[in-house]
Design a protein around this nucleic acid. Structure first.
Length: 683
DNA sequence: CGCATGTGGATTTTT
DNA sequence: TCCACATGCG
């Protein structure tokens, strides 16, 4: 094996981490320092230099994306690998699922091996059914989902009863019983149950390796602890400067917890290979005290700071700028636009579409977002697991699909197994005997006669039909690949679809699409691009003003994550006239934290002063006018004048005074201009 | 139904 | 901090 060549390519810090043999080791991996490379090298080194088999290693990540990257890179550097050796490689949840499925005695806690994984929505559905059946008094049901998702076990019985003085405590217990009865586990149940069963079952892996360890929450830390025996070595990698998800429950300061608990050795990877020196110098301004970060690249281009009149103008500028960059030879997929809030993406979508800039908005999408597939998955859930009453109930009583039976009647049928009262119900019940040999999607489609159960009058009919067919194809494909009996394979697919979302569906569609990526700063974590634009770096938006006087370190780290995504070119921009009320017109204080020698001052800036000055005058004039004469407002539609703009095309003038003009364009909607600067022409 | 009071969310999102 | 919505009493 070529692990020795592999080692030679590493720098001294990376090599030290790979070769380290202490019982516990915490690696402080700086941004862009080759964290994943070290992980892969470490795994290969253990396998071939230390003769540790892959099945003696547990390799944990937080996201499927990270897990897939590690597996892909591992497979490409070691082609002797067999997929079944990598059972212990994956997200915390999927490794817990594998353990519960294959080695841990789930019967001990009342489950059967064929249990299904459920998403939070379904857990909520079950809870609501329990509330209805047992007539429980639960306050604030609208927030029940949140309450269920947070770890109820941290509350004591008294706390739970006293908090709202309702039946929450009973609900939590009944819900747990019901999940066992229906043979279902929620995401957190996977970890909780694995933790419970690991008390009596010693797995004793030789190595536990964890990526992005700084994001661990309580359950995950417990999972690590339960997996680890005295003979297990622990190797964790992470970056305290990239903690941006603590609001989601990652424990505070995981690094020091681990260091203390396991007396871990601390190493660091300080060398950044990714960014040009200017970008890195700017990034250093946002590091926590004491962290060091070393670059090895040339200075590169300066950081550009620009101001725009409003988000729309910013988007138009970006469209032009990106077109230029692309013409100079940079592929679209090396360009990214980041923003703080999802809502900011709309204007980019609109403008980029109009300007034919290929783009892609990163949005999480699951099967549940497509109603017909949500229904279909539930149909399969009951078909493979007849204990899953809540799914059957949903399938029969859905208002859009199926037989659209009333909820009460459906409950009756499901509880008493009235096969004669519902054709669809009978089909789900007999699915295992009649469809176990299904070889293609048409067979299943015809068995269920789906045409009968999707509304033929609905405008979505054709789309729904296609969605069903493609999901059926995917299931068949999945089962074939896994070489499992059809029923088991389908059950397995359902678990995967809960755990891996719609990724299974979209797997290869997006990977190499040559398009500009639009995403929130949060979503940018772990990615890199040649050219990065961070937009809306306004006072009030970055850092986001939540409560006044909230000096939030996490916002600073978020901005740090954003700028360190850039390899060669970074542009920051802000608006002088933000559309949103809570956003102030000035630049973010983060911009002034960057030394001016790194920043390319733009001509726009001097004009910006004028604009702001003008804007102030205009607002004063407007206010004065309002005081003076309130009846003046309405304008008759008869004297609407037409104007045209170089970029936005033709439009109608809605409002006009000495300084401002408001125009409604055919394609771009309503826009406001300052007369002196607008390039409008009257027609 | 109307009104006073209670409750917690605002922004980011993975499994 | 303020706002939206749920609850509960009269």
């Amino acid at each position: 094996m070529h692990y020795k060549d592999d080692l030679e390519r590493l720098n001294e810090y990376q090599k030290e981490a790979v070769l380290d043999e202490s019982g516990a080791c915490v690696v402080n991996a700086n941004v862009g320092s080759g964290k994943t490379t070290v992980l892969i090298s470490k795994i290969i080194y253990l396998r071939y230099a230390k003769n540790v088999s892959y099945s003696d290693m547990i390799v944990l990540t937080f996201t499927n994306k990270a897990a897939n990257e590690i597996k892909d890179r591992l497979i490409s550097s070691d082609n002797n690998i067999k997929t079944e050796e990598l059972e212990g490689f994956g997200t915390f949840h999927s490794v817990a699922l594998n353990l519960l499925k294959d080695v841990l005695p789930v019967e001990k806690i009342g489950y059967a091996k064929g249990f299904l994984v459920i998403e939070p929505e379904e857990e909520l559905d079950i809870a609501m059914q329990i509330i209805q059946e047992k007539k429980l008094r639960i306050k604030y049901k609208n927030r029940l989902k949140k309450r269920l998702e947070q770890d109820m076990s941290v509350y004591s019985e008294e706390q739970m009863i006293s908090q709202y003085n309702d039946d929450t405590f009973q609900l939590v217990h009944l819900l747990m019983e019901e999940k066992v009865k229906q043979n279902k586990m929620s995401f957190s149940d996977l970890l909780k149950n694995a933790n419970t069963l690991l008390d009596d079952y010693k797995l004793e892996p030789k190595w536990i390796i964890i990526d992005e360890v700084q994001d661990s929450d309580k359950l995950q830390l417990e999972f690590i602890d339960k997996l680890k025996s005295t003979r297990t070595s622990l190797f964790v990698v992470g970056d305290p400067n990239q903690v941006i998800y603590s609001w989601r429950g990652s424990s505070f300061n995981v690094f020091s917890i681990l260091k203390q608990k396991y007396a871990a050795k601390e190493l660091s990877l300080p060398i950044n290979y990714r960014s040009s020196n200017s970008i890195l110098e700017a990034a250093k301004c946002f590091l926590q005290d004491g962290s060091c970060l070393t670059g090895i690249r040339e200075p590169g281009s300066k950081i550009v700071v620009k101001s725009h009149y409003n988000p729309f103008n910013e988007a138009c500028y970006l469209a032009d700028r990106i077109r230029d960059i692309h013409d100079s030879g940079v592929p679209f997929n090396e360009i990214a636009v980041f923003y703080r809030l999802q809502s900011q993406s709309q204007v980019f979508k609109d403008v980029f579409s109009k300007n034919d800039i290929p783009h892609e908005v990163s949005l999480k999408k699951t099967i549940r977002d497509i109603p017909v597939l949500n229904w279909l998955i539930k149909l399969f859930r009951y078909s493979v697991n007849h204990n899953d009453l809540s799914s059957a109930l949903y399938v029969l009583s859905s208002r859009d699909y199926g037989e659209r039976i009333s909820e009460g009647e459906a409950g009756e049928i499901v509880r008493n197994m009235h096969l004669d009262k519902s054709e669809l119900y009978a089909k789900m019940c007999k699915f295992d005997s009649l469809c176990a040999e299904a070889k293609n999607s048409d067979e299943i489609y015809n068995y269920f006669e789906f045409d009968k159960y999707i509304r033929p009058t609905s405008s979505a009919y054709k789309e729904d039909k296609e969605s069903i067919s493609s999901l059926l194809d995917i299931i068949i494909e999945y089962v074939k690949e896994k070489q499992m009996p059809f029923m088991d394979g389908t059950a397995d697919f359902i678990n995967s679809s809960a755990l891996y979302g719609v990724n299974i569906l979209m797997k290869d569609i997006r990977r190499d699409a040559d398009s500009v990526k639009l995403m929130t700063l949060h979503a940018s974590k772990g990615l890199e691009f040649s050219h990065v634009f961070i937009t809306g770096v306004n006072y009030g938006l970055i850092p986001l003003q939540t409560r006044p006087m909230d000096e939030d370190d996490e916002e600073r780290r978020l901005f740090f994550v954003g700028i360190t995504r850039a390899k060669n070119h970074l542009e920051l921009s802000y608006y002088t006239n933000p559309d949103c009320v809570s956003v102030m017109p000035g630049e973010s204080r983060y911009i002034s934290m960057i030394p001016s020698k790194l920043v390319q001052n733009d001509a726009v800036k001097s004009m910006d002063v004028n604009l702001q000055e003008l804007k102030k005058q205009i607002q004063m004039a407007k206010a004065a006018k309002k005081m003076e004469n309130q009846a003046y407002e309405p304008e008759s539609p008869a004297n609407v004048s037409q104007v045209s703009h170089q970029k936005y095309g033709k439009g109608k003038v809605l409002k006009e005074d000495e300084m401002m003009i408001e125009v409604e364009f055919e394609n771009y909607g309503v826009r406001e201009f300052i007369k002196a600067f607008s390039e409008l022409q009257y027609i």
